[in-house]
Nucleic acid binder design. Structure first.
Lengths: 345, 345
DNA sequence: CTGAAAGCGCTTACAG
DNA sequence: CTGAAAGCGCTTACAG
């Protein structure tokens, strides 16, 4: 085979768009357009370009594309934590959708800190991502300004916004907590505590859902609220249970804002000889992997994080590719998983 | 303030290197060199460049830099799974070191599949990463060839290689399993089963460590090996325990290759009324967060994954920045964590 | 619909 | 040590 081009010393040796165009017998611009297939190109020319590209094993250079278009093939995703399985599931779902569409995922872990999120978003925007996925709706004003100024399309995950210009995929944390509380009331419990850690916005929405339901039932009591700003963990769950049991306020059931807390409480109960659900009913939130295997198995709320990740990534791709958006606000719901830990005697 | 430059319609409005050079009164090349500080530049000129850069809020464009230098500021990291907390810890450690040094982390989840790893590495190499972090030493021949051909520096994590040209940070899975087995023998157990899932290379090294110690003690028996290729999980741990108990071969202790399996076994034992450690001793591997809180608390091997991530990232940065490497093979050791689940009566 | 030109913002390679 | 030129591989913006 005869080398038709002389390459400079800086060339990488990979096939370039110019190579493809030459082989197809069209201009570089036509080749570029044909490969991106976003504007009309003569069908026969497009086919020649496709064949040439295939034959040369052409792969577009992401850096060149980013430099020329001022937009990279990266999509930045901000999540609060990787320690909570919830977000790992979310992330894996996002990544598989984006990867299939040819986009790279850049993950920023905010540690539930809006200022750290701001810094991460600032850094990511320098790389001109094609899109941005944010967890929750509570960004700092500066983050919002940075994002708006950048013009980068955004989709919000895990909560729904009612604003017309905000695209969000989530479910109602408030309703989910309300329904679980309603279930505990229906089981005959009246003194139902709410125990939470981390106290991030979604946790506080769950608190509100519990509170509203308790108030409506005429059973709300501030002494039933146990809030610890420490990161949520099995250990903290045990501590919260110990505090609740040590207090003078009788409790028949405890609704933990996350399954890891509830699991810790179940283990602490076992260690101290407290019978669950016999002496105390316990439930959690999120349906993490261990919950079905606990003894007793844990009643919880199953949240659609995989679906949230998938839909959010799909909607973001539509925005990135400038396709018309069918829906701005996707509510994916939730379901109660009733297991042994709240079983009425 | 007077705008000294006319910008084309394609400009982004951000300060460029040319702006910095102009303000500092030097050539663009000198500014470039001064900012990268990799070659000697006159001190006074360098200062002028630094001042100008600061004043303009200059941030280099990663795409332009990547295009010109054929090397991006991304570092690709391949890990088997995000479901195992082990790798989440590893990843967070890696990311915090790389981010502090101005590099972006691109994560590829291989799902323990060398072919998926190969595909991910292939994709990542198209983006010309500055460096590559790989988990384990068992890449396909093609992956090795791709990496070698790319010239991208690599550091291997979680296992140590004896090859002189391989940079690795890890510990001996073999020794760790051997020591734990030794401990169980010292507790007086003779029929010690080894139960594993996933069966990835590191799990098999643990199997070898257990086997060697059992053989040396004259106690090895193939009926004591319980291997399930399914992904490791709490559920599978319970199943493995059930199989072991249902078999006709007596067992005094079970060494699970990962803590999630051991946790599942503890829960299954509790459900079936089997006393641990009274009737059966159980231990795990990795010291995952829940293990200290299980009832009984779980004896396990604490593995240095955070340190592995940090050191691996540091070594990779040294290679990327062409600094001399002090060490090629970093063995970070491990420690046994003795808890209730193996306590001799 | 198609294309020649210019440009994106850097760094390499070469002279001085 | 410093700099003018060329180039990295694409896409934008403008004509036709």
């Amino acid at each position: 085979m005869i080398k038709t081009t002389t390459r400079s010393s800086r060339s990488t040796g990979r096939a370039t768009l110019a190579d493809v165009a030459r082989l197809a017998g069209v201009s570089q611009m036509t080749a570029s357009r044909a490969l991106r297939s976003n504007s009309r190109v003569d069908a026969e020319m497009a086919q020649r370009v496709a064949d040439a590209s295939e034959k040369l094993g052409y792969v577009p250079d992401p850096a060149a594309r980013a430099l020329a278009s001022q937009r990279s093939s990266h999509i930045a995703v901000m999540i609060p934590s990787l320690t909570n399985t919830l977000f790992v599931d979310l992330l894996e779902a996002v990544q598989s959708v984006l990867r299939a569409a040819g986009f790279q995922t850049l993950v920023g872990v905010t540690h539930y800190d809006p200022l750290e999120e701001e810094q991460l978003v600032r850094e990511q925007l320098l790389h001109r991502p094609a899109g941005l996925l944010l967890t929750g709706l509570q960004q700092t004003a500066r983050t919002q300004a940075l994002v708006a100024a950048s013009g980068v399309p955004v989709v919000y995950m895990m909560e729904n916004s009612d604003a017309a210009d905000v695209v969000s995929v989530g479910f109602s944390q408030f309703d989910a907590a309300g329904q679980m509380t309603r279930h505990l009331l229906d089981c005959g419990h009246q003194r139902i505590a709410f125990a939470a850690a981390q106290l991030d916005p979604r946790t506080l929405q769950r608190l509100q859902g519990w509170r509203k339901t308790m108030q409506d039932a005429g059973l709300h009591d501030a002494n039933l609220e146990w809030l610890d700003p420490a990161p949520s963990s099995i250990g903290v769950g045990g501590q919260l249970l110990a505090q609740i049991l040590a207090s003078p306020h009788a409790v028949q059931a405890v609704f933990f804002c996350n399954d890891d807390l509830a699991q810790g409480a179940l283990l602490a109960a076992q260690r101290s000889g407290l019978r669950v659900p016999g002496q105390l009913a316990i439930c959690g939130f999120n349906d993490l992997p261990a919950s079905a295997y606990m003894v007793p198995s844990l009643t919880t709320v199953k949240t659609p994080r995989v679906e949230v990740g998938q839909r959010a990534a799909q909607l973001l791709l539509q925005r990135v590719l400038q396709e018309p958006l069918v829906e701005h606000r996707v509510d994916l719901g939730f379901s109660l998983i009733l297991r042994e830990s709240t079983q009425p005697g």
